[in-house]
Design a protein around this nucleic acid. Structure first.
Lengths: 335, 335
DNA sequence: TTGTAAGCGTTATCAG
DNA sequence: CTGATAACGCTTACAA
């Protein structure tokens, strides 16, 4: 192991000078700096992470908090998480930060995992990959007033000086897709959700309402619970409002589910489908689904950048929206 | 921040004794140990990770190396990775290890990311989530003879004292699914792959061959490249061997692709499908696909355990197989 | 069984 | 601009 002392010796300076060269300190002559830098090259030196962290009393580590495996969020969106993580990792490794992970089967396990990180690791940067009201994990982290939290998602109830949000503008997305359908000639869309208590689904519905309102169309929604009765509810909804000719589904998975239900019900008429997340599922379904790309990689990158940017400029951006884009496919080719 | 000195003071002992109590050192009386432990509780003490790592000259960190985003592996199997990662994280956090991540768009970027970890972080445990021959990243890690490498996958060319493998027994899986088809009454299966240079696909084909051989049936395979010509090749293959009544596809994604091609070709006869990975895709396709569950979470857990177990028992397991299971669905309900 | 003291690699303070 | 020195929190000979 080559230390800063070795570098100093080779360059003929003291360790403190070597350290200054390492950190581009202004109080150092260009000449010696160059000399030290060359020595570092030659010895292939790199500073010891633990030693730095010890003396600076910080961890240079950010923990990514994944939703508990048991939570409903986990289900469809897996690839999604992977991409967010990659976005985060990419900017963190540029900044010389380590990325750590916290997971758990239950919320309790997750909490334990986070506690370990907070204690022994002095991790004081957290990026939550979910937003949940009354989240004990978030509350535990927030006990530490120093900790910086970025939440990928949105939640009005979590206001704190050192908590920021990055998210898709789901209200706008909901409005955009509805607008899109109406422009394509569809007349009466129906919003399909699985759980309105999820902020994402609720926001998308709000957007749906807004768009539909502005066209003086009434806003209907149907909640599907993955129970056998779903089929009947869907049938009834279609009977009740026979003008329904398109669906706005809260995510790709749900859209596919509706398509299967319609197959079961032998409803053959061509209805429009639009959904969210633009996962592989959407592309592969037949008919391929028009879906909203939400750029999870960007979401991750931006979340991580927020962590560092905070130092640079004191801009107090509490919430950042990542733009989305509708990817048009067969399911909205009006026949 | 509460340090070991605070604990020592409260317990009325020296820091070294406190340290001994922390580590269950045998050279300490039960009485004092208890006293120290109580002090730790009271102060809610937890050791400083950086300080420990500094003095012990190790990192207590394992890095998960994801495949480069550009590589073909990334494509279908996303959810899969997430689950492996969760398995790894779960055992690592139990062991007090930190989990770090290395990613990159290209292999070069990934290499850079890994280099950073190796240098400043002294990470000396790596879990690769892919196996690739002539992998510059693996080679870079192997420069360090101390580093422990676990590879989730299989690769004969990477023999090293401190490199171990965890994988599904893909040859057996290939054989099992083929056997399964034949038992269901299918007569002539065709193996579909996308790239035989991928070890996974090749192994599965080997198993396919084995099973088919033992029934005195000839082994055919077809390679699809996601090009427009695929459709023609498939048609020709079916013409050439009109007895083909089932497909063994190298993964769920490929199976779905074949189904779409057949739809295009207007081939309506009911053919059998079996594929691998049992991703959400398999469950949602219509007809739902019979697929091989490979238990990615277990794969991850086992990979991580191998890292620690090595200390405990000196068993020189170079390769570990995680059992798989066929999940039967509509696509193999012989009509 | 316990305490003392040195040192892990780095940085910050202060004196030159 | 540069160098000595003292920390950071912890472990581990070595002494008692």
């Amino acid at each position: 192991m080559v230390t800063i002392k070795d570098v100093a010796k080779l360059a003929g300076v003291s360790p403190s000078t070597a350290s200054r060269a390492l950190h581009d300190n202004k109080m150092i002559s260009p000449a010696t700096k160059a000399r030290v830098r060359k020595a570092m090259e030659e010895l292939n030196y790199s500073p010891n992470f633990s030693a730095q962290n010890l003396v600076k009393r910080q961890s240079n580590t950010v923990a990514i908090v994944l939703p508990a495996r048991e939570s409903p969020q986990q289900l469809g969106n897996n690839p999604f998480f992977m991409q967010i993580i990659q976005g985060i990792t990419s900017v963190c490794s540029q900044e010389g930060f380590m990325v750590s992970l916290a997971t758990g089967k239950t919320e309790d396990e997750l909490l334990a995992s986070v506690r370990v990180l907070m204690k022994s690791g002095h991790v004081d940067n957290f990026i939550f990959l979910y937003a949940k009201v009354e989240d004990t994990v978030y509350q535990a982290v927030r006990q530490n007033d120093e900790a910086m939290c970025i939440i990928v998602g949105h939640d009005e109830t979590k206001s704190h000086e050192r908590t920021l949000f990055v998210d898709t503008d789901n209200v706008k997305a909901g409005s955009d897709v509805t607008q899109f359908l109406l422009e394509r000639g569809y007349r009466q869309p129906l919003y399909i959700c699985t759980d309105m208590s999820e902020i994402v689904q609720e926001s998308r519905f709000k957007g749906f309402q807004k768009a539909v309102d502005s066209h003086h169309i009434s806003a209907h929604y149907l909640r599907l619970t993955n129970a056998p009765s779903d089929s009947r509810y869907l049938e009834e909804a279609l009977k009740r409002t026979p003008t329904i000719d398109a669906f706005v589904c809260c995510d790709d998975l749900t859209a596919i589910y509706v398509i299967r239900l319609l197959e079961q019900l032998k409803i053959e008429q061509s209805l429009g489908f639009i959904s969210f997340n633009n996962s592989l599922l959407a592309e592969l379904e037949s008919p391929a689904l028009t879906s909203v790309e939400i750029f999870p990689y960007d979401l991750g990158e931006t979340a991580a950048k927020l962590l560092f940017q905070r130092e640079a400029s004191k801009s107090i951006t509490k919430s950042l929206w990542i733009p989305h884009r509708i990817v048009e496919r067969e399911s909205t080719y009006r026949r």
